[in-house]
Amino acid sequence: MHIQEWLESVPAVAVYLMVAGVIGLESLGIPLPGEIVLVSATLLAASQDHINPYVLGVCAVAGAIVGDSIGYLIGRKGGKPLLEWLGRKFPKHFGAHHVATAERAFTKWGMWAVFIGRFIALLRIFAGPLAGVLKMPYWKFLIANVLGGIIWAGGTVALIYTVGKVAEEWIGKFSYLGLVAAVLFGVGSFVVMRIKAKKAQAKADREPAGQPAAQSVAAE
C-alpha cells in the first residue's frame, strides 16, 4: 500500500484519542513523549483532510487540563510518599535530584511553575502531582493549568498546522520524504526541549535552595 493511502486509512477518532490519551498521561505524571505525538498528529492533520485540526486542538487541550488535574489530586492524596515511590519506579525522571529541582522551581515561581511547566519537559511531568503534594490551593492551580494547557496545546496545533499546510504540496509530491521530515521534526523538537530542560535544571542546581518549598507554596 502506498504511504499516502495508508495515511488516509488512519481513523480520525484514533488520532484524537491517541493525542488526548498520551498528553493526559504525561500531564498526570507518566513519562511519555506528548510533544512528539502532538506535533506528529498535527502534521498528519495538515496533510489529511479527514482529521480536523480544531477537534485535534480541543482533544490536546482537554488531555493536558484533565491529566494535570488528576495528577494534582493524586499528589494531594499521596503526598511525599508518592514522590518517593515514583523515584524508585522512574529514577531517571523522579529521582531525588529531579524532585529537588522541581521544588525549587515551585518555590521561585509559585502557581506560575504550573503554567511555565507546560512548556518545559521536566516540569510538564511534575507540575500536577507536585502541586498537589505541596498543597497549592486548587483554584490557583486550575487557573495556571487551564491557561497553560490552552496556550501550549492550542498554540502548538495552530503553529504546526499552519506550517504543515504551507508545505502540503511539497509533502504530497514527496510523501515518503514528508513523513520522514515530520518524524525528524517531532524528534528534533523533543531533543531541543530535553536540552533546554537539562540546562534549566543545571542552573537551578547552582542556586541556593532557600526556604522549604512545601511551606512556600502552601503559604500562597
Rank of each mutant, 00 (worst) to 15 (best):
M1I: 05
I3E: 13
E5K: 05
W6L: 09
L7Q: 07
V10G: 00
V10L: 01
V10P: 00
V13N: 11
A14I: 11
Y16H: 03
L17E: 03
G21K: 12
G21V: 13
I23G: 04
L25H: 10
L25V: 13
L25M: 07
G29F: 06
P31Q: 10
L32Q: 06
G34S: 08
A41H: 00
T42R: 00
T42H: 00
T42M: 00
T42L: 00
L43F: 06
L43Q: 12
L44T: 03
A45C: 09
S47Q: 15
I51T: 02
V58A: 05
A60G: 04
A62K: 14
G63A: 11
G63E: 02
I65N: 03
V66E: 00
D68F: 05
S69F: 06
I70P: 07
Y72E: 04
I74C: 04
R76S: 13
K77I: 10
G78V: 04
G78D: 02
G79R: 09
G79F: 06
R88S: 14
K89S: 15
K89V: 15
F90C: 14
K92R: 10
K92C: 07
G95E: 02
A96I: 14
H97S: 13
V99W: 05
T101D: 14
E103P: 02
R104W: 01
R104G: 04
R104H: 02
F115E: 03
F119G: 09
F119V: 09
I120P: 01
I120S: 11
L122T: 15
I125F: 08
I125R: 08
F126Y: 01
P129F: 05
A131G: 12
V133P: 02
L134F: 04
P137M: 10
P137F: 07
Y138R: 04
F141D: 09
L142V: 12
I143W: 00
V146N: 04
V146I: 10
G149F: 06
I150S: 02
I151T: 14
V157I: 05
A158V: 15
L159K: 10
Y161M: 05
V163R: 10
K165M: 13
K165T: 15
S175A: 10
V183Q: 03
V183N: 04
V187G: 11
V187F: 08
G188A: 11
G188Q: 05
S189V: 14
M193F: 14
R194D: 09
K196P: 04
K198S: 08
A200S: 14
A202D: 15
K203W: 07
K203Y: 06
A204K: 07
E207I: 10
P208F: 06
P212H: 01
A213E: 02
A214Y: 08
A214E: 15
Q215K: 15
V217W: 03
